[in-house]
């Protein structure tokens, strides 16, 4: 007997088109709505098949490990179980039909793909000003969303939560992502060369201080999204981070929540 036919939405984040397929019309609608602005007609590089389960949303820690038998990645949390084979570029996901699980799976998958391509996902807001991207990183509550809310006219928001970074000619490029934080608004689907990275710290005055390379590496390693418990990949990531800080200026930005802080961003 033939199974129900799969419908496909191609979602392109960070210049990486991925075919997401499902037999469920409602879930397809959710996919298209969630990633509106990131839907693409490009030929997919990767394929993910979704099958829906009745599990609830989970706050458990995610577990990401390589399967010893076939080298595929296995990603698990209470609300999803996913498997992805980096050799074939294909994977499958069993999850509840909710956007939070969906976002989580895609973030993990992109973090793994980026690790192999020299990029990474960073807990950071990012925005384009005069054709160049500025990153504002920090833990929850550090002020990522606040910085985007204070942005003057003419700024293009790439994300208020998860910045998508890939090596590009002579440096790094930041891409917009649909992964939103408190702003609850997806970023613009565009890209720009990274001009600078600021680590956010709230304080009584607006002030910029250059960070030493070692401190920049330390801050970056703390704020990069990386889920896999794999020493080889962590070491690879460290080398990429060292390369990043040797190319991109990194600062500590102490700020109080007012628009004038943007006068320091250049």
């Amino acid at each position: 007997m033939m199974g129900a036919s799969r419908k496909v939405a191609c979602v392109e984040i960070g210049g990486i088109p991925m075919a997401l397929s499902t037999c469920d019309e409602d879930f397809l609608g959710l996919l298209r709505q969630r990633y509106d602005g990131f839907l693409s007609s490009s030929r997919p590089e990767f394929e993910l098949e979704f099958d829906l389960t009745a599990t609830g949303v989970s706050d458990d820690d995610v577990r990401v490990r390589r399967n010893n038998d076939d080298n595929a990645w296995v990603m698990e949390r209470g609300d999803f179980h996913a498997r992805w084979d980096p050799c074939t570029g294909r994977g499958s996901v069993r999850q509840n039909a909710n956007p939070y699980s969906l976002d989580s799976v895609l973030r993990i998958l992109h973090s793994l793909i980026l690790a192999e391509r020299g990029g990474f996902l960073l807990h950071a807001a990012s925005a384009i000003r005069d054709g160049r991207a500025y990153l504002f990183s920090g833990v929850s509550g550090a002020g990522k969303t606040t910085m985007t809310r204070l942005a003057p006219a003419g700024i293009t928001l790439l994300t208020d939560e998860i910045s998508y970074l890939r090596p590009s000619t002579g440096g790094y490029a930041a891409f917009g992502t649909p992964f939103a934080g408190e702003l609850a608004r997806a970023g613009e689907n565009c890209t720009a060369p990274v001009a600078a990275l600021f680590f956010l710290e709230k304080g009584p005055h607006n002030r910029v201080d250059e960070l030493s390379s070692a401190d920049a590496v330390r801050w970056l390693m703390r704020n990069i999204l990386f889920f896999a418990d794999d020493a080889g990949l962590v070491e690879h990531l460290f080398r990429r981070v060292c390369e990043f800080v040797s190319i991109v200026p990194v600062y500590e930005l102490t700020f109080r929540p007012d628009e004038e802080v943007w006068n320091l961003i250049e």
Binding site: S212, S213, M221, F238, R239
Partner: peptide, 24 residues
């Protein structure tokens, strides 16, 4: 064996790959 290290701006930066702690 469980570290990665790199010289950056005259300082050796060392990371423990077990727990990602960074030392300069």
């Amino acid at each position: 064996r469980d570290i990665a290290a790199r010289m950056l701006a005259g300082e050796m930066v060392v990371m423990s790959v077990k727990d990602s702690r960074v030392f300069s």
